[in-house]
Simulated assay, not measured.
Amino acid sequence: MPATASVDLPPQQAGEGGAGGGGDASGGAMGGADPSGSGGGVVEVGGGAVDPCPPDLTQCGSVCVDLQSNPYHCGGCFEYCPTESCVAGICDGSTLGHVAVLGMSFHEDHAPSRHLLGNAVFLPSSLDVALLTYAKHAHPVAVKNVTSILATEASKRGRIFSETFTNDADDLAAQLDTASFDVVLIHDLALAPPGHGLAFATTTQQALEDFGQQGGIIVALATSNDEMPTLLSETGLLATAGLIPIEGALLSKTAPTDALALGVPAPFSAKFKTSAIVATEPSSPLLSFVFSDDSAAANPVVIHKVLPASP
């Protein structure tokens, strides 16, 4: 463990996400890991701060770290490297893929959820983001709203996005590769007949797994309890036992430094067609419950999972 020392920091630098932790979540690894880490030059921040970090270190939350070698801040604040080998700011041996499961359908336009969706879809660091959207059996209002929200969020963030729609699972599986797309978006199966979630999973499971292991981003909107838990579980995206409607519940950040949470005003009220996710996978450095409801169980509503690259 490197030696630590007290360093004063300007008060205006303190805050959620640390330095560079504004609303743009394009850096996007998990923030649930130990924010100081155990390597790569860590200097603890003292109280009553007035001076910046040393020139070779960057403030991330309450510590000054070396972004070139710290596996918990590899290349940027809170960008966790699962291989724990950060070399020159790059996670050695790993191109991270991500799964973001949002218990929201976006029937209503709502500032916090709008920013949250933007954080998920614009996780890729590239200026241009190519999106493949599966919208079969989704509610048309939700599909229209999501596309409109993403156009607005892209403009706000100075990003460019293109969206390709498909209503065919075989077509999605055939098209899905990181050479063509950065993100795949799976809409909530609000109008799906019984068995469609399993049929979709059977067709697309391998393609989704390969896409994630190649560094792709998979975003799933999940509020319908009939088919979405099966789809999530059988594709391997997230082991899920069910979804619980929570319209009107208060949602709070439970992983405030996670890339999906950055810049999202909270707490906020759950809107129409919002569901808590009964996940059967525990939280870990690679799986973060980002927003949770105000029930005694604090059920997660937004979950972010990092997928290490294939060997």
Rank of each mutant, 00 (worst) to 15 (best):
A173Y: 00
C60I: 02
V7N: 00
G28V: 06
T240V: 12
D188I: 00
G248V: 09
D109L: 15
C77S: 03
I303Q: 07
L123F: 02
A120F: 03
A169S: 12
T203G: 05
V301T: 11
A88N: 15
L198D: 09
Q13F: 11
G158K: 06
V121Q: 02
V7M: 05
P193V: 02
F268P: 06
S292R: 03
V301G: 00
S69N: 09
H110F: 08
V101G: 04
G21I: 03
I244C: 07
E79A: 04
L116G: 07
F161L: 14
V101L: 03
D66L: 02
S155N: 15
L185E: 00
L185V: 14
G195R: 10
G48Y: 06
L127K: 14
L172F: 07
E234C: 05
V65N: 02
A296V: 13
L232V: 06
V278P: 00
P11C: 08
G212T: 07
A309E: 10
I244N: 08
A201F: 04
N119H: 11
S126D: 15
S126P: 07
G22N: 06
G23N: 10
H73S: 12
S36F: 13
G75W: 03
R114L: 11
D171H: 13
L132Y: 01
V42T: 08
L123S: 08
M1P: 11
M104F: 14
A151P: 11
T202F: 07
V302R: 04
G47P: 06
A309G: 15
D66K: 03
H107E: 14
A25L: 02
L221K: 00
K156A: 15
I246P: 00
D56Y: 03
S85F: 14
A249N: 13
E16T: 08
D293I: 00
